[in-house]
Amino acid sequence: MIAHAIFFYIFSLIAIVSAIMVTVSKNTVHSVFFLILDFISISCLFIMIGAEFLGMIMLIVYVGAVAVLFLFVVMMLNVAQQKNQWLLSEDSSKHIPVGLIISTLIFFELIIVIGGWKYKPDLFNSSNLDISRELSNTHSLGQILYTDYIHIFQISGMILLISMIGAIVLTFRQREGVKKQSYLKQISRERSEGVEVLDVASNKGVKIDD
């Protein structure tokens, strides 16, 4: 039990510190790396409370896919070289009041949310779902997700699909004059079309039409 507590505090400490470092660190690529560290320690916390499936999915989806895209964008934008001096420079200081207002709003919202937080004495017994303790995480999740909540599950799938199509439509542009290769044409090329054997007369040469 003590080892459990020690690991809990280690992981939560790493999570909090890296979450702070995401916002504080000056290099954007570093903050993405801290974000990844945050995700990993949170999935460790998930695994520690027994939600192994959620923890693994968190690793696969957020760390394995989403954070890679983050890193791609940040590395491509080359923001790492920019000196982060917006606090001191003259022209960008007008953003500070707006940022301050938004952050105080979020701060008070968080206080309201956390202030109204009620800790249920035993979460498992109070739920009205019929879950047996024998089943593994994955089984019980599947049994709930594909029976009672199938419509919500499918609607969320639809929303994801629509947002994917939207992103593709927004970024897709038809460009003129782009050379494309037809794989079928390349594969179906025969020797007779590609090579022609000629008898070349001396001092005359061959006219190549191109």
Partner: peptide, 24 residues
Amino acid sequence: INVGILYIFAVSSLGVYGIIMGGW
């Protein structure tokens, strides 16, 4: 563990980071 295959999948998807970090 119960989610062995997911664990392997997660670890192998983390493998990208070694390469991205080295390259960057």
